[in-house]
Design a binder for these strands. Structure first.
Lengths: 338, 338
DNA sequence: GTTCAAATTTGGAACGTTCTAAAAATAGAA
DNA sequence: TTCTATTTTTAGAACGTTCCAAATTTGAAC
């Protein structure tokens, strides 16, 4: 088990100085083409591998970006994380990923670990709760940090926010159900006091009041199970409710399952719409209407913004909202062909 | 923008040597309790953050583990990745994650990047294809690497394999459908020539031939869409087929959607079972039977094995199979209560 | 041949840790 | 006291890069 060759070994073998080898590694235009060739060849021969830890020690760019996600099991966040990771990868950055499972103390720990590792920047979809310690740590360490998807720390001047326009999305969804003929529409799922819930709920309320109707809140966990139970409860105890704007697609998909179970069909006599437009929406039957924030584009844009911040050292605007779009499918139209 | 304090600053402020500070960082029992106290306090005061790059340069343990996943969007792999990441995190290791999207050239690139970053070990669920370059690289760099879930590089003495017992799982699934009364059972989904497909298919074939029946292969992509299309095709063109062992849960869930669409109910006149037992199986209706390899346990076990390898420098056994268990639910039983 | 500028290469000092061997402090026994 | 054994602390050399300033080579113009 002998150790890896260093640039000094390469320099020796190639008959140049270690500085030259270093310049080759950095693709500097200073060094002559033939020399580059020679050094590259020698590296390949010796099986040289670059030691970033050493480089980082000197130059303070680890080529590492942190990605902190509150719930990686939710396909919406999975899609965000993988897309962002691949965008970083394409620019030569490796991604340190951590799932915090909505646990702020875990979040504090992993963020600390990332700072130790010298990440150049952090994208965080933060856990709700006592996040102060975590963000204070980030502020002290002066690590460029963007809040994505969720709005937790209010110091957006320090930690810029980039999130979909949830308020507007919920308005679109609610108006769409009204257009589709629903008369009594509930808002299902989402826990009170969380930024996303508040934003989506407020959009729903605005549209409902605009239409002169009474809002119906059925808040709860944003899980399939909650959706399924609610669908069954709704049919049994509130048969007059004929539409639901769901907090997210998981809840809506759960409702779809519930309807299947009791033999009711969304789209025909019940207008259903989700939020996030995860892939599964177009793969179930009946296909689920949803509000899309084009999560792939969103994630790629978030990654680009972070990379821009790192390159130019210019902080992005404090609050930025990503566009949302209504995707009407069978669950709200009742039209088999869509 | 002034720079972070180092152990030298801490040492100075606390009136001890940098060696002492270093020992405190390593929680060495050598240093007196009062001194530890003093140093800790000083660190907190100065807002000291540990620089792992520097430490790594000297001691060659970056506290970083690589996780390379072929398809992070599949909930089965998501679950594996998050569980493993959290297990590593608990032991003080940060996780560098990369999704390769079944692309071997991307895989080569990210593995190279991980090696540069000095990961202590790599857990890889490899992409199918030309994986040779990637594994040769790993062999040269002498990074402890475990193949998980999938079997690609045959050099298991170099790259130990830890995967569920797919063969046995498929036997259990097939026998279960036979017990449940199915007379004509197809194997649906999975692409030929891939280790998991081969293993699961062979289990199915064995059980089918054991029962004196004719196997029916309907291989294809392992997506919901393929499952849905197959379900519809089956009902139209092969009404005699009354059971399906699916390559994985996604295919089975797709079939469930297809059945919903055409008004057929799995469990009653069609016996359906998936593989992997992802959470969604018990959240849809009808609930989906599946073969569980207890992915959380599996992932935790994989993480522990890797950590053990790193600590003891003793390579794990070349091939190890995780246990599988049949989880019978409504889609194969027709019993509403389960 | 010189000369000068431009192009290319190079030594050596960082960077912030860990580790080794040795020094210093402390405590207990004589 | 003095000595010894033990505990605690420390100086200084690594580790593998990058970066600066300076040295060397090249080549074109005289």
């Amino acid at each position: 088990m002998k150790k890896r060759p260093t640039i000094i070994d390469v320099a020796q073998a190639a008959g140049v100085s270690k500085s030259t080898v270093s310049l080759v590694l950095q693709e500097s235009p200073l060094v002559k083409a033939e020399t580059v060739e020679l050094v590259r060849k020698t590296m390949a021969q010796l099986g040289y591998v670059y030691n970033r830890a050493a480089a980082n020690l000197r130059s303070a760019n680890a080529g590492l970006i942190g990605l902190v996600i509150n719930d990686l099991r939710n396909p919406f966040f999975t899609e965000f994380a993988t897309t962002a990771q691949m965008a970083f990868s394409a620019k030569g950055y490796a991604t340190v990923l951590a799932n915090t499972d909505e646990d702020t103390s875990l979040q504090l720990q992993v963020v600390g670990s990332m700072i130790e590792h010298g990440v150049s920047g952090i994208l965080i979809s933060p856990s709700y709760g006592d996040e102060r310690l975590c963000f204070d740590l980030l502020a002290r360490a002066q690590v460029p940090t963007m809040q994505v998807l969720r709005h937790v720390d209010r110091r957006c001047d320090l930690f810029p926010l980039f999130a979909p326009d949830n308020h507007r999305g919920a308005i679109l969804a609610t108006e769409h159900l009204l257009d589709a003929g629903a008369k009594k529409i509930a808002f299902v799922g989402g826990l009170e006091g969380r930024s996303i819930t508040d934003e989506r709920l407020s959009g729903y309320l605005e549209a409902i009041q605009e239409a002169g109707l009474e809002p119906i809140r059925m808040l709860g966990r944003s899980s399939r199970t909650f959706g399924r139970e609610t669908a069954i409860d709704l049919s049994e105890n509130h048969p007059d409710i004929d539409g639901a704007v769901c907090f997210n697609d998981l809840v809506a998909l759960g409702m779809l399952s519930g309807f299947n179970q009791i033999g009711r069909q969304a789209g025909r006599d019940f207008k259903l719409i989700g939020f996030d437009d995860i892939e599964e929406c177009s793969e179930v039957w009946p296909k689920l209407s949803s509000v899309s924030c084009d999560i792939k584009d969103f994630a790629a844009e978030a990654a680009v913004t972070m990379l821009g911040w790192l390159e130019t050292a210019k902080k992005p605007e404090p609050v930025r909202r990503g566009g949302v779009e209504l995707v009407a499918r069978m669950s709200s139209l009742g039209n088999v062909s869509i």
